[in-house]
Design a protein around this nucleic acid. Structure first.
Lengths: 188, 188
DNA sequence: GTCTATATGATGATAGAC
DNA sequence: GTCTATCATCATATAGAC
C-alpha cells in the first residue's frame, strides 16, 4: 500500500479510537510505520490529514448504509434493516464521534464531511419512508424528514448509551424500542 | 464561593465545552481564578477534580429530568415534556459527551457517574411508560425499558446530529419524529 | 491555603541531510 | 520521498517559600 494510504488509514483508526484532540501526528506516524518527514511531505499537517481521513470514512459509511437502504423489501423492512445492522457498538460511530470534538466542529474542512454524511443519511431514509407512505406500506401523516432524523438519532444516541454503560445492551434496547414504535406505523 | 466550588464549577464548564482530554489543569485554574498550588491542595489531580465535577453534573441532570418526569399529566405527557424540554442544543449534553472520551470510559471513577445517570434515566422513563401502560394511557405490549432507551437515545443522538449540522434543526426534527411515533402508541 | 519556581514528557512542526 | 535532528510550546505535576 502507498504511504499516503497507510497514513490515511492509520488516521481513520486513530480518529475513531481517540478523537481528533486525542490523536497526535506522532501516533499516526508510528501506526503507519512512517517517519515524521514523510507525513509532512504528503500532507500539510494534522488538520489536512484528518480531513482526508474523514472524507474517506464518510464515503465508507455512506456505502454501508446505502446497502441496507437500497435492499429488498418494503420501506419498513429497509429502515428496519438499517437499524438492525450488526455494529461494533462499543467502538461507536466513526463519523458521529467527531461531532463532539470542538476543534472538528470549529474547522469547516473537518466538519464538512460529518455534516454532509448525516444530511445525506437523513435525506436518504426520509426518501425511503416517503416511498413507504406513498405505497401504503407506512402510515401517512408523519413528516418523513422528522421520522428519519429520529431513526438516525436512535442509532447515534444508542452508541452514547452503550459506551456509557460499557455494554452493547442499551444500544440493542434502543433499537428494539425504535422498531416497536415503527411497527405501529405499518399498515400491513 | 469557596475555592473548591469555584474549581468544581470551572471544571464542569470546561468538561462540557472541551471534554476531558481537551481540558487542562491550567485552564481550570485560570477560569477559577486560582493558582496551581491551590488546585493541587484541594484535589489529587485532574482525574480527582474531574470525578467531583462529573458527580455534580450528574446530580444536576437528574434533578432537571425528574422535574419533567414527575410533572402533571398522563405518562405520554410526561415523556413528551422530557423530549420537548428547552435545551441548549448546540452545547450538547454535559454527561453524554463524556461517553465519547476514551480516558473517561477507561477510568471507573470517571465513567461511574455517566453510567449511573443513564441507568437512572432509562429506568425512570421506563417506570413512567409502564405506569402509562397499566393505566391504559399507552398501548401495552412493547417493553417499557426498550421504549425508554429509544427515547433517551433520540435526545442523545439529536445532540450529535445538531452539532454535526451546526444547527438545532436536526435535533428538533428527531424530537418531532419521536413524538409522532409515540403518539401512535397512545390509546386515547 | 495559596503562591511562584521548577521538572519531565508530549505535541505539532521545521530544517536539512541522504 | 524519506529520514533524523531540533525547536517552541503545552500538559501535568512536585517543591518549597510565604
Amino acid at each position: 500500500m502507498a504511504t499516503q494510504d497507510r497514513l490515511i488509514e492509520s488516521t481513520q483508526e486513530l480518529l475513531w479510537e481517540r478523537g481528533y484532540v486525542g490523536t497526535s501526528p506522532k501516533a499516526i506516524q508510528q501506526r503507519a510505520g512512517v517517519g515524521q518527514g514523510s507525513m509532512y511531505h504528503h500532507f500539510d499537517g494534522k488538520p489536512d490529514l484528518a480531513a482526508a481521513a474523514l472524507r474517506r470514512s464518510a464515503e465508507q459509511m455512506r456505502a454501508v448504509a446505502e446497502a441496507d437502504l437500497a435492499g429488498p423489501g418494503t420501506a419498513h423492512d429497509r429502515v428496519a434493516a438499517y437499524l438492525r445492522r450488526e455494529r461494533d457498538v462499543l467502538r461507536g460511530c466513526r463519523i458521529g464521534r467527531m461531532a463532539q470534538d470542538p476543534e472538528v466542529v470549529a474547522d469547516p474542512r473537518l466538519r464538512a464531511p460529518v455534516e454532509e454524511t448525516f444530511d445525506w443519511l437523513r435525506g436518504r431514509i426520509a426518501e425511503v419512508i416517503a416511498e413507504g407512505q406513498a405505497a401504503g406500506d407506512l402510515r401517512p401523516g408523519a413528516e418523513p424528514a422528522d421520522l428519519a432524523a429520529a431513526v438516525v438519532a436512535v442509532v447515534q444516541g444508542g452508541y452514547v448509551l452503550a459506551r456509557a454503560a460499557d455494554s452493547a445492551e442499551p444500544f440493542e434496547r434502543a433499537v428494539r424500542g425504535a422498531l416497536a414504535l415503527l411497527a405501529a406505523h405499518r399498515t400491513d
